[in-house]
């Protein structure tokens, strides 16, 4: 169960806004990336992550994470302390990257529409339910195919590949 405060964003927030390209030089440093997360969103020039408490929830509109393929986009959001991203919809590479990293994302047009900045939320990832304590409401999330849920539960693509490599080594032994 995840509990946290909502931070809201609009539609088509692209990866250059999530983490401006100039910070790509920190691609191997999650904490440093986290410090600059969402800084490219107009109005956040002076930093966003310092306002975040660990576990807070990012809520966005449609096509969240469009633009480049940079995996540092979900990494930066995670590095800032965000526990889960809820959006009306995700751009596909951001979606893939999050699942591959085992970083929870939820698609819920209903939640994206209703949640206001500062709302206190509780998320049950297994049930796919978001509870809004501030508004006294509850939203359902779109279900992912079983393979994607399996990847998120395993902790992402890394453990999955380790398993495959092990199977191959056994098969050729």
């Amino acid at each position: 169960m995840i509990r946290g405060r909502a931070w809201t964003f609009g539609n088509n927030v692209d990866t250059d806004q999530i983490i401006p390209a100039k910070y790509a030089i920190y691609s191997l440093d999650e904490k440093k990336l986290g410090e600059h997360a969402m800084e490219g969103v107009p109005g956040n020039e002076d930093g966003w992550s310092k306002k975040i408490s660990a576990g807070d929830i990012l809520v966005a509109g449609s096509n969240f994470g469009c633009g480049s393929s940079r995996e540092i986009a979900p990494v930066a959001i995670r590095g800032a302390g965000v526990s889960v991203v809820v959006a009306d919809s995700f751009a596909r590479i951001f979606f893939r990257n999050s699942i591959n990293l085992g970083f929870p994302i939820l698609q819920s047009p209903q939640a994206a529409e209703a949640i206001k900045e500062g709302d206190e939320l509780e998320i049950d990832l297994d049930e796919g339910v978001i509870r809004n304590f501030t508004q006294g409401d509850e939203y359902r999330c779109d279900a992912f195919p079983p393979f994607m849920n399996e990847l998120i539960k395993m902790g992402g693509l890394v453990p999955w590949v380790r398993e495959r490599l092990k199977e191959r080594a056994q098969a050729s032994a």
Binding site: S68, E71, I93, N97, N100, L157, V161, R168
Partner: peptide, 27 residues
């Protein structure tokens, strides 16, 4: 992300992330 460019040459080409690429290079 602009790896989709190659599709002009009648292939299926798409952009992926770094963990994806690690998976592809490994497997």
């Amino acid at each position: 992300s602009h790896s989709c460019t190659y599709g002009a040459l009648n292939n299926f080409a798409t952009g992926i992330g770094s963990t994806d690429l690690a998976c592809v290079m490994a497997l």
